[in-house]
């Protein structure tokens, strides 16, 4: 089976339902509904209802403490579109996704290729790169705030040892987002690396042996055998990471706070501040709908790209 890759492609996932053997599926029975009932209740109550309620909220004036104050039509959306902080948040989020997703794919693939052997050394290195993924976001940000700390931080100390001037990534408008990208890569590179390693194990050995007989060079083998075989996994990693990184929040809030000059505030932080700092739930709900839309567009785009390559 191809597991999550199919899961992420709705068309592919829906297909086997019809294909499964008749005996396996059996006669329709209301009793069988019990299998899915707990999940369906949860999904309706905790996904469908909030989605509907959120959509309704986005057209309301709803104060967190003062309560509902009537409908405002499209006002929340109109205000949102002219809000420069929000525009910046959308830009930052897109930039962040654009920087992290290729980095996760590239670095994850590189590590997987480099460590895909039976050597003990490679096993140790694999655990090093995966190990940081089990730390919680606050431990990670605690560590990195100390790394980035001016004057007494690890980065400054190391640069100083090489006689280089200190760079303050967190406080520099052009570098603040990059500082969060680095933290995010450091934190969860383990997942893409592992997915690629697993996919590499799936490539039949015979293909490589055939290539060796053909005297194909390493670069050519990589280019014409390994990478094409990994196409689905590359798409899988890209989709998973895009879903995760569009929702970036904790690292930014705890490292840069969104600054300087709004250079690193992501959409989720904007939602948090509009709702929980400024009490404007309707406005926050409208911002949530925009995030939803952005992610949907991005996911569709990636799937379309994946399909096109599959065909080509």
């Amino acid at each position: 089976m191809s597991g999550a890759a199919d899961v992420l492609a709705p068309g592919a996932a829906a297909r086997p339902v019809a294909a499964a053997s008749a005996a396996g599926v059996g006669r329709p029975s209301l009793l069988n509904l019990l299998f899915v009932l707990p999940y369906v209740m949860l999904m309706l109550g905790l996904v469908a209802v909030p989605v509907g309620f959120g959509l309704w909220l986005s057209f309301q004036d709803y104060d967190m403490l003062g309560g509902w104050n009537g409908s405002v039509g499209l006002a929340n959306y109109v205000n949102l579109l002219s809000d420069r902080i929000f525009q910046g948040a959308v830009r930052n989020t897109l930039l962040f996704v654009a920087m992290t997703v290729p980095a996760f794919v590239g670095l994850g693939l590189f590590l997987a290729l480099a460590l895909n052997d039976g050597l003990r050394r490679s096993a140790v290195l694999r655990s090093v790169f995966f190990g940081s993924s089990v730390l919680s976001v606050t431990v990670v940000t605690l560590i990195w705030r100390l790394v980035y700390m001016p004057e007494r931080g690890l980065l400054g100390t190391v640069l100083g040892a090489f006689g280089l001037p200190e760079v303050n990534l967190v406080a520099d408008e052009r570098l603040a987002l990059l500082s969060v990208v680095i933290v995010t890569l450091w934190w969860i590179i383990g997942l893409p690396m592992t997915l690629f390693l697993a996919a590499l194990q799936q490539i039949p050995r015979e293909i490589y042996e055939a290539a060796a007989l053909d005297n194909a060079g390493r670069a050519r083998t990589l280019w014409s055998i390994t990478l094409p075989s990994l196409k689905r996994t590359i798409l899988l990693v890209a989709v998973i990471e895009a879903i995760l990184q569009f929702q970036i929040f904790g690292q930014v809030l705890l490292i840069t706070g969104g600054g300087p000059n709004n250079a690193s505030r992501p959409v989720v932080q904007f939602i948090y501040e509009a709702g929980f700092r400024d009490w404007q739930l309707g406005f926050a709900a409208a911002a949530s709908q925009v995030l939803f839309l952005l992610m949907l567009l991005a996911a569709l785009g990636q799937l379309w790209l994946g399909r096109r390559q599959d065909r080509g």
Binding site: A14, G54, S288, M295
Partner: peptide, 18 residues
């Protein structure tokens, strides 16, 4: 399949209210 497309951070505000 549709619910799979709903980002969890995007429904926090209504969830919190509920």
């Amino acid at each position: 399949l549709a619910a799979f497309a709903v980002p969890e951070q995007a429904i926090i505000v209504p969830l919190h209210t509920l």
